[in-house]
């Protein structure tokens, strides 16, 4: 049954997912080629100095892409479900309702990760051509909060769409905006290292909110 739900989400989203994957990889490749240009046009030691002492990282323009992808995927996945309250179809299937929605969220998060991971790989492999292993650590510490922001944005979008009451939708949007802003502060490579576990835990706990929204929908708790 889990596979059937993943199949449904795949059929629903496959075209959009391919577009996102292509866009992410294309953007990553553009940044990679810019790096290549910079590396060739300048002395290698200058490039390293810019990295080590000025915090220059060639993938910084990618910062908001995971967030945008997360919101887009949440919209594309759940808008069809809540139009005409189509989510009733899922809630009527012979499996636990929480499990049903949780599987939808798992499918969405998986697709989001798969759409973004190739770009991350381009950065890692591309960076490895010109930078030492210390740079990979920087990549991890800078990129991870952005990816977590993307996952958080996806879960927030799902929660907002599944929630039936407009006032609560606005509340969730404000909460998400306020929290996700803290994931996207300017960083000088490892700046987020100490708060990364807390950010990850928060995003994990955020899964509860769309489940809560769908539960409220089920109970008819509109007020």
């Amino acid at each position: 049954m889990s596979r059937a739900l993943f199949y449904k989400e795949w059929i629903k989203l496959r075209l959009w997912w391919v577009l996102m994957l292509a866009a992410g990889v294309a953007f990553a490749l553009v940044l990679f080629f810019k790096l290549r240009y910079v590396a060739n046009a300048n002395e290698a030691v200058t490039v390293w100095n810019a990295w080590i002492f000025k915090g220059w990282l060639f993938f910084r323009p990618f910062q908001y892409v995971p967030l945008v992808f997360g919101v887009a995927l949440g919209l594309l996945q759940f808008l069809p479900e809540v139009q005409a309250r189509r989510v009733r179809l899922v809630l009527h299937l012979p499996l636990g309702e929480t499990r049903a929605i949780a599987l939808h969220l798992a499918a969405g998060l998986l697709l989001l990760a798969l759409a973004l991971l190739p770009a991350a790989l381009v950065f890692s492999l591309g960076g490895a051509l010109w930078f030492p292993r210390e740079w990979q650590g920087n990549l991890f510490h800078v990129l991870t909060p952005w990816l977590l922001a993307g996952a958080g944005a996806y879960l927030a979008a799902a929660a907002v769409l599944l929630e039936t009451n407009w006032r609560h939708r606005v509340f969730y949007l404000l909460l998400a905006a306020g929290a996700l802003r803290l994931f996207l502060l300017e960083t000088f490579y490892d700046t987020c290292a100490r708060i990364l576990p807390a950010l990850a835990l928060w995003v994990l706990a955020l899964v509860l909110v769309p489940l809560f929204s769908s539960h409220r929908f089920r109970k008819g708790l509109v007020r």
Partner: peptide, 21 residues
Amino acid sequence: APRTKARIGYLIEGHIQYGFF
């Protein structure tokens, strides 16, 4: 129980189904 849900069919008003299939 999910077992019981499997024995019940439900037609939603407007014949709502998944349009992307």
